[in-house]
Design a protein around this nucleic acid. Sequence first.
RNA 1: GGAGAGGUGGCCGAGUGGUCGAAGGCAACCGCUUGCUAAGCGGUCGUACGGUCAAAAGCUGUACCGGGGGUUCGAAUCCCCCCCUCUCCGCCA
Length: 443
Amino acid sequence: MRYGSAMLDLRQVGDHLDEVKTQLARRGYDDGATLDRLAALVSSRSQAIVELEECQRERNEAAQAMGKIADKSSAEFAERRESLKGLKERMKALETTRNEVEAELEDIVLGLPNLPHESTPDGKDESANVVVREWGEKPAMDFTPKDHVELGDALGILDFDRAAKITGARFVVLRGLAARLERGLMQLMLDMHVDQHGYEEVWCPALVNADSLRGTSQLPKFASDLFHIERHQELEAQGGGGQDLFLVPTAEVPVTNLHRDEILEDLPKAYAAYTPCFRSEAGSYGKDTRGMIRQHQFDKVELVRFCTPEDAIEQHALLTQHAEKVLQALGLHYRVVELCAGDLGFGAAKCFDIEVWLPAQNAYREISSCSWFGDFQARRLKARYRSEPKGKPRLLHTINGSGLAIGRTLVAILEQHQRADGSVTIPEALRPYVGGAEVIEAK
RNA sequence: GGAGAGGUGGCCGAGUGGUCGAAGGCAACCGCUUGCUAAGCGGUCGUACGGUCAAAAGCUGUACCGGGGGUUCGAAUCCCCCCCUCUCCGCCA
């Protein structure tokens, strides 16, 4: 009945089961039994539907004929009515069967990741990711680089202790120039994307409903990564149930859902949005506990593009370049890596990560992840487009990427632009956004 | 939070149990007209899934009138729950 919620094309799964298995295996999904079960469900589903529709047709014809009998109290009418009761029972049974099949089907299908695009390199994990290009070079330092926590503490601009007091672990209080840089970075990024790269600026709710999260595929599988706001608990206790809301983990969710259940006629569309992002970070205990690399709350400017399948590769590359421009403007050394199939996110078919150089960690760290989802999200979202006025609607493609994660950008600025005395040079492009300040130094 | 009114096709808007996928209008598209001229006439004009077909077109079946459930031989129309919008009051950045 409603198959829009499927993430993979069910017909494809049914008709090309082996191919789907092979593709999913590339990203480490090897549950062949579930896929076999899925294929079986697909066919029993269509069987049930065909049968049910046949009954519905019968019923409709009979009911229509009865409507034409003028005398509703006649014996003929009563007789017909009785004879239809059996059909009604049969339909109920068929409906039950169909519902059961659909429920199981949906369960499986919503949990299946996307198929990697053919151009996505093979590989099991991040060690097989491919470095596509590098920009700039590691800043030369004739001293031992400090990390941003140490720098920020000495400069009096990052306060983790008080954040822990106010809220808890994995939060930060930014003070003085750090707070101002955070705000300035947000403006700089939005201005670049809007004025130079042609994105439409949008401002969205930071709380979204479950339908939206299903649309972009955070739900149902990744509920534990989200902060969840419960409303109307008293109603829920009565079995009614209000609508629960979730804090957005990324602007991808509200922005991509802008076009849920819509048929667009003017592609491509490009949106840039700032939102705070909230992540529970369940399962990452002990990982990046120091500093502001991995926080429960951070700011991000997100880029989202909607396009035709034909344009997608090009649009994906374009979006990635737009994100890179921000790092270039800030004079931050980075590299772009293409994720291998095994390291791909759940919904992505192809993905470029932009990794910024952090001297204190002696490592490149992800600062943006630019993903192309094919029609995976579009199918869940029922987001389509029409290429001609009377043309048939087709699923569009979605692409998104951070442009950039602001907190990590701040970290990179502190660490890459630090000087021997512990002060930090503010990149020129950013100065107009922070009241002309050129350096961060201890007071 | 309290009281009330509503949610119908791209838009407006009829429709209170059968002949309704849904009047009429607008917009759009395609023709025709060119002495009613910022016009006239005719036609087309939702989506999804399935069947037919070599395929497309066409034809055809089913579902969808905010969402879910129920009553009935039959529901856009009746009943229940939910969501949303609007108006008034209260509160409030």
